[in-house]
Write a protein that binds this DNA or RNA. Structure first.
Length: 329
DNA sequence: TAGACGTGGAG
DNA sequence: TCTCCAAGTCT
């Protein structure tokens, strides 16, 4: 993984760059390694250190993050980079407690950075560690109530020697061997002491409380292309869903939203809607598409010139709408 | 403290 | 097609 240093460098006492550790850990929050890899490469190529990132315009960072999800992470990433520069002389705090004070850094990320970048024996507990501990110690209590117990069990195993390598090793074990489904107990180095394995319930742990069903919300989005190729977009407010990202003007997303076009035009119905599922609801988004003249004066949003418009800077639901509009215009 | 907050891949 | 979920944080 591009954010790790090799064993040869590690053997010389070299530490990984705290900036790269921080960036990778934030990207990896609730996100798979496969999804993060290319984003990490693009971010570090464009912004090689925390000072460069802190100096970047908001819209550049949000656009580079587009598609990775949980956009509050990108907003907090910038806040954090700027705080490190302005309040910590451009250096990340080296302790769990110091890191916890920064935006977007919670208990897991603070411990991970402290252990991996600064060799602090912090207790690193993510979903992988929770799963490994629940199985190793046969914890039947469901998550999230079991959280405190699992942290205590993880703390009892955390070594003072090479805590960063230990933390990554347990997370790697969870990601590759002690997986949620069909764990590979036959090649697991902890198969012998594993209580869940002995009881034959390893595939059922950790237990989890049932989640709420996702309601259906609907909405309408308006995609207007001006005669010169510019698209009518708007910047979404910083708070809430897709906060700070570009999007198409349209209705709210609700059980039965009211809607109002952003400008007068001959709106066409493409006959296809966008279906998208967020963490807590399903969305059916109807589309209205129009070609408008150069002097069109929108009541909402702004025309982004085609030379400045990259579909990759849109969140996925907005890019799905764009793909449909482009196919019929 | 429980709910808000994205996405793409696996089964 | 559908559910689950992945290296969580914020409010």
């Amino acid at each position: 993984m591009p954010w790790r240093i090799g064993p040869a460098d590690r053997a010389t006492g070299q530490r990984p760059d705290p900036y790269r550790v921080w960036l990778s850990e934030v990207m990896l929050q609730q996100t798979t390694v496969a999804a993060v890899r290319d984003y990490f490469r693009r971010f570090t190529a464009r912004w090689p250190d925390v000072a460069a990132l802190a100096a970047a315009p908001d819209e550049d960072v949000m656009g580079e993050w587009a598609g990775l999800g949980y956009y509050a992470r990108a907003r907090n990433l910038l806040k954090c980079a700027r705080a490190v520069v302005s309040q910590h002389h451009g250096h990340f705090p080296s302790t769990r407690e110091g890191l916890l004070g920064l935006p977007g850094i919670g208990p897991y990320t603070a411990a991970a950075i402290a252990a991996i970048a600064f060799d602090e024996p912090a207790v690193v507990v993510d979903g992988n560690v929770e799963r490994v501990m629940a199985r190793l110690h046969l914890v039947e209590t469901p998550l999230p109530p079991a959280k405190a117990e699992l942290i205590a069990l993880a703390a009892a195993l955390t070594p003072d020697h090479r805590p960063g390598d230990y933390a990554q090793a347990v997370m790697d074990l969870g990601a590759t061997i002690c997986t949620p489904r069909n764990p590979a107990c036959g090649i697991c180095p902890w198969a012998q002491p594993c209580a869940a394995r002995a009881a034959g319930v390893q595939g059922e742990l950790p237990r989890k409380l049932a989640k709420a069903a996702k309601p259906l919300r609907t909405g309408v989005a308006y995609l207007a292309r001006r005669a010169d190729g510019a698209w009518l977009l708007e910047r979404r407010p910083d708070q809430g869903l897709l906060g700070g990202m570009l999007g198409w003007p349209g209705s709210d997303w609700a059980a039965s939203p009211a809607d109002q076009p952003p400008l007068a035009a001959d709106w066409r119905d493409p006959g296809a809607e966008v279906r998208h599922t967020f963490t807590h609801f399903h969305l059916h988004l109807a589309l209205r598409i129009a070609e408008v003249p150069l002097d069109a004066a929108p009541e909402r949003g702004f025309f982004l010139p085609s030379a400045d418009f990259r579909p990759s800077a849109l969140p996925t639901v907005m890019r799905k709408a764009y793909d449909i509009a482009r196919s019929i215009l």
